[in-house]
Design a protein around this nucleic acid. Structure first.
Lengths: 118, 118
DNA sequence: GCAATAACGGTCAAAAAGGATAGTATAGAT
DNA sequence: ATCTATACTATCCTTTTTGACCGTTATTGC
């Protein structure tokens, strides 16, 4: 008897053991849902995002923004080619399909704080 | 002018910058939503979970189960005090409040596979 | 009597994620 | 002329997460 080869799901070259982990592969991590939570309400510049997320470092923020862009979740628009730049981030149509999830994730956090707080 | 001290949310001794990250602090990581996805449909023994998740190592599975238990999301019931043990895992009432989120996370994964595949 | 099963825990190592800090280019304000 | 703001990138480093692999206990089945 050999090991059963588990049938994996594939998306964008990555493999996932189940549909839930595919989603988490895209919105998982410490900061991605926070970014999406803020972009859900509309376009934001890089500096505006930073103000809303004061505890993330610039490096981490731009890394996360880049991978969200690569995954087709957000748009990046540059408004001047030379510094000082103006760059705006917004959800793509594909990214907007995540809004219900992000909203329910945020709601659950609020719910927990209200009902299970020390 | 001093740095504005960002107001943090606190839950179970951990700090989060926003309600969305609180939720992710509990269901984030590579395996937790997969565990919850399987437990959503009912109680499972440790060995049954393993069969449903063949690509996770035993050590990681028990670590994740332990932290989910510590966070009050799942119950652990032991049925014999001496080996071979029988241990069953199930969602707590608190854990059940996560079902809509886990379901929508799983649904989005399916949706992506159907509509945006390779 | 020996292997398999169950549900882990321990140790070590690798990989992934995240943070600290500094640097860059240039326009506009002071 | 200097300073500040913008949106990053580059190093370097630490922390967290995950994996590989082996050991443990006791009962059941062959």
């Amino acid at each position: 008897m050999e090991e059963a080869t588990p049938k994996m799901l594939t998306f964008k070259g990555k493999e996932y053991p189940c549909c839930a982990s595919l989603t988490m592969g895209i919105i998982g991590g410490k900061w991605k849902t926070v970014i999406l939570f803020h972009l859900m309400h509309g376009t934001l510049r890089y500096s505006e995002l930073r103000k809303q997320m004061p505890t993330v470092t610039e490096r981490t923020l731009s890394l996360q923004l880049k991978t969200l862009e690569e995954d087709g979740i957000i748009n990046r628009k540059v408004y001047t080619s030379k510094p000082p730049l103006k760059v705006e981030y917004s959800l793509t149509d594909f990214g907007k399909t995540l809004i219900p999830i992000v909203q329910s994730i945020a709601d659950w956090g609020d719910f927990v704080l209200e009902n299970y707080s020390n």
